[in-house]
């Protein structure tokens, strides 16, 4: 782009990578050290026999924790805090769970089809009590396909920022500002992909992931509504307030 210099793109890429590493919740090395710790069969059964509402609450707590790190990530992206408050909220409300799903591939073991959850690596069967097998399968499939792209931390950081800064979210007040920021992030991502000598089609593959992420999040909302219809008091009194703000 004639309006953004290479130096600016390098700077943007560096800031976003740093922000990602400072807020990624677990370092890759930490996760690698824990990778041999899978839940034993009796532990799996104990999750499966939890009441549905207890498992929902546990997952809501874990999601909320992960989202708090995403909020910190957003705050450190150059330009995010210059957006108006309405737009900061809109972007986080729509995109924070999407970033959690993107980040999940760092905590995912493709060989065993397990994800780091509540202290150990868990397969899809651990989440049976939620009563959302189809959504869980889709989330695991998404993590597996993200893993197959073998993104480096800086690529993952820039893709997360690109997802968060989506300029097509409803209710943005200063759409043009967000568009500019997203465009700059996309150029920085492109720049890093070139620098890392990644294959030509990777950016397109990543663009395809955006629609998969939207579908996962809308299905999460549907499942939550169905759950809330049966357990309105549980959501109202036992779910983390931030979770309710974002998805309520």
């Amino acid at each position: 782009s004639p309006t953004v210099s290479m130096a600016e793109l390098d700077h943007q890429a560096q800031i976003i990578s740093k922000s990602h590493l400072e807020t990624c919740q677990y370092l890759r090395e930490e996760l690698q050290q824990m990778s041999w710790q899978n839940f034993l069969q009796d532990e799996v059964e104990s999750y499966q026999s939890k009441p549905r509402e207890v498992m929902w609450q546990l997952c809501a707590v874990k999601i909320t924790e992960a989202i708090q790190y995403v909020v910190e990530f957003a705050k450190r992206i150059d330009g995010f805090m210059d957006l108006c408050q309405n737009d900061q909220i809109v972007l986080l409300k729509a995109g924070s769970l999407e970033v959690v799903f993107v980040r999940m591939c760092r905590m995912f073991d493709s060989q065993n089809n397990t994800v780091y959850f509540d202290g150990k690596f868990a397969g899809p069967d651990v989440f049976k009590a939620l009563g959302c097998d189809d959504l869980i399968t889709s989330v695991f499939d998404f993590a597996k396909s993200m893993c197959s792209l073998h993104l480096s931390e800086d690529e993952l950081a820039l893709f997360s920022a690109f997802v968060l800064l989506s300029a097509d979210r409803s209710w943005l007040q200063e759409k043009l500002q967000v568009e500019k920021l997203q465009q700059k992030t996309q150029l920085a991502l492109q720049h890093v992909l070139q620098k890392n000598q990644r294959e030509d089609g990777l950016l397109n593959k990543l663009r395809c992931k955006v629609s998969a992420l939207r579908s996962l999040c809308s299905r999460h909302t549907e499942k939550l509504s169905a759950f809330r219809a049966v357990y309105p008091d549980i959501v109202g009194t036992h779910f983390p307030p931030l979770y309710k703000e974002l998805f309520g």
Partner: peptide, 16 residues
């Protein structure tokens, strides 16, 4: 604003 009180608060807290 009241609807997103916690998010506002998290955004306003300085980064540590």
């Amino acid at each position: 604003k009241e609807k997103h009180k916690i998010l506002h608060q998290l955004l306003q807290n300085s980064t540590s």
